[in-house]
Design a protein around this nucleic acid. Structure first.
Lengths: 147, 147
DNA sequence: GATTGATTGTTCATTGGTGAACTATCGGAC
DNA sequence: GTCCGATAGTTCACCAATGAACAATCAATC
């Protein structure tokens, strides 16, 4: 489950908000990860399956890296593990001999479905924990933070 | 800088809030980590230095693990790296021969001071990005999420 | 005083990330 | 047609974290 424990370096009041924020995010992430636990998937793995499923076709690894917003070497390793799990297969691309395509196996499709169901449940539970009003104010705060 | 790229598995409106939240947290964390970059420290390392500095004495590694909310093996490795950086020293405990104490070196004290300054600046900048009203509503949302 | 159980730190394997270096291939420009 | 720069994937070393297994030590309890 790989908890990603938060450090809360500083104490003071206003600045502490930043670490509360990060700490809350870790808690949420841990909750999602825990929800996926029975499926044997992680968020990282499920994301790859989801990209493959929504594309409805095999995708080049660099494509996956772009969608995942991560470096290519990370995808190489993720796909290594997914392949070992039997959820994904590597295939050569017809047009470009540099390219390697990843495609879902039947087991991968099933894992994807199961994982997305578990994830959706967990997401709903978390969102429900925020009363309607707070959800929108959170959304404002969020956009202020990311800008 | 170790960006912790967010996956945004799902698209739908309300549930997507959860991933926006995680994504915003990653952005904030990346910003803090970037602010620490010139000091050569990471959040994880700075947190250890901070615990040692605020304790004003050498601390057993298991103590650090407790404060960091992480497993002991993680601290072993973190202190390994900090020791290699020359910021921390391992020392035997007088009373308990199982215990290993970590203490700040002079370089460690300086790095701590510099790191905390950089961190505080970055925190202030981030908090300022949230107008006063949104800060409190965020705080409410936060407590709703963690409960 | 010996045994038994908890605690301390380390090591190892695994997950998930980064970035640099390398090979192979692809496409143009010339 | 050849050369040269961009692109694709892998490998490697590193950072950060987890959890299991292990040796050493401590603390009771008998």
């Amino acid at each position: 489950m790989r908890k990603r424990s938060r450090k809360r370096v500083s104490r003071p009041a206003s600045e502490a908000l930043v670490f509360s924020f990060l700490s809350a995010a870790d808690a949420v992430e841990a909750r999602l990860e825990a929800a996926l636990d029975p499926t044997g998937l992680s968020l990282a793995k499920l994301a790859v399956l989801q990209f493959l499923a929504e594309a409805k076709e095999a995708l080049p690894l660099s494509d996956l890296a772009a969608r995942q917003h991560c470096v290519r070497s990370n995808i190489t390793q993720l796909v290594d593990r997914l392949e070992k799990d039997g959820l994904v297969r590597r295939r050569a691309a017809a047009d470009d001999r540099r390219s390697v395509l990843a495609e879902l196996t039947p087991a991968g499709q099933q894992a994807h479905a199961k994982g997305m169901r578990a994830l959706a449940d967990a997401q709903r539970a978390i969102v429900k924990a925020l009363k309607a009003g707070e959800a929108t104010s959170l959304q404002n705060a969020l956009s202020a933070l990311t800008s």
